[in-house]
């Protein structure tokens, strides 16, 4: 454009005018920049955000193999000794076992309670429906810190010593409403004529539940189970206030960091736990997109959003 303007104004170089104009003029720098930004700006921006989310964890994992107690360059050599230190730590082992044990109970209980509460809220009409829905949603909105403090006071008031049982109970309270939301969303999209058809074909109530409703709810139940497990395993606030002397994994990491002793050990175990968490969720997601027959990217995105809505 600049070139054509220049030749139009008679300011072209010595050969101007006689040389045939190029088939496609090079656009000006400003336009090219704008195009480049609109083309690469988004991907670069998204890449930077993803790098900020995952970068620190990757660096953490890398330094778990560094043969030094400080996390700075230069690299002090490869070692796996921090992993043996972590495995030899009895407190850490106890905390991990506690956490897995608690999560393994919280997850199925949350699925049951969440499903039970989702049914009446989405399908039945009764006077207290609004109140019930608000009550079930409240633990998702009220800060966990407040719930944790009230739990601490409550168990003290009841004269119950803090233990794995108290932390388990409080975690169920904050976790099962998540399953309620997932199952209710899935139920709301269920076409009830399917049920009527099943009844017309002679199915009993139980058969409708088993062969029509449950298969439809399965993705939500599975997502609910996995999310409830990870919410429970990762839960820090509640665990910190009501677990008493039985440390859970997040509390162990927190108190180790507060005292700043033997940090590479934290790197090692954090790497293992993060790897396990990512692998678990990714495998579950692969399994369910495969089961649900999601082939296109759109269907897979829907399956994914199902889990986060």
């Amino acid at each position: 454009m600049r070139k054509t303007q220049a030749s139009a104004a008679g300011l072209a170089g010595p050969a101007g005018g006689s040389r045939p104009a190029p088939a496609r003029a090079r656009p000006p720098l400003k336009l090219r920049l704008r195009r480049a930004v609109s083309r690469f700006g988004g991907p670069v921006f998204a890449g930077v955000v993803i790098a900020l989310l995952y970068g620190p964890i990757i660096v953490l994992a890398a330094f778990s193999f560094n043969n030094s107690i400080v996390f700075s360059l230069p690299w002090a050599g490869f070692t796996t000794k921090w992993y043996s230190v972590a495995f030899g730590d009895a407190n850490l082992r106890a905390a991990l076992i506690n956490s897995i044990w608690v999560a393994a109970i919280v997850a199925p209980v949350s699925v049951v309670l969440g499903t039970l509460s989702a049914f009446p809220i989405t399908r039945f009409h009764f006077k207290l429906r609004g109140a019930a829905a608000m009550l079930v949603a409240a633990p998702l909105v009220i800060p966990w810190l407040v719930i944790a403090v009230s739990g601490q006071l409550y168990f003290h008031f009841l004269g119950v010593d803090l233990s794995q049982v108290t932390v388990l109970l409080m975690q169920i309270v904050v976790t099962f409403p998540l399953v309620t939301v997932l199952v209710a969303a899935r139920l709301a999209r269920f076409d009830r004529t399917q049920e009527e058809a099943a009844v017309d074909l002679g199915a009993s109530q139980l058969q409708v539940l088993r062969y029509v409703l449950l298969p439809h709810l399965m993705p939500a139940l599975a997502a609910g189970f996995i999310l409830a497990f990870s919410w429970s395993f990762n839960n820090f606030e509640i665990s910190y206030f009501v677990s008493g002397f039985n440390q859970l994994f997040p509390v162990w990491v927190y108190s180790t960091l507060r005292h700043a002793t033997n940090l590479p050990e934290v790197n090692a175990i954090a790497t293992l736990v993060s790897g396990a968490e990512v692998a678990l969720v990714y495998l579950a997601w692969l399994f369910f997109t495969w089961r649900s027959g999601a082939r296109t990217a759109r269907e897979k995105a829907d399956a994914l959003l199902e889990a986060v809505r």
């Binding site: 995952y54 964890i57 330094f63 994994f249 990491v253 940090l263 736990v273 678990l280 990714y282 994914l304």
Partner: peptide
């Protein structure tokens, strides 16, 4: 998927990674 997956990582571990 990456945005959903990062939430599965332990929040205390993520804070620690930044501190490091």
């Amino acid at each position: 998927l990456l945005l959903v997956l990062v939430d599965e990582l332990n929040p205390i571990v993520r804070i620690y990674a930044w501190r490091m």
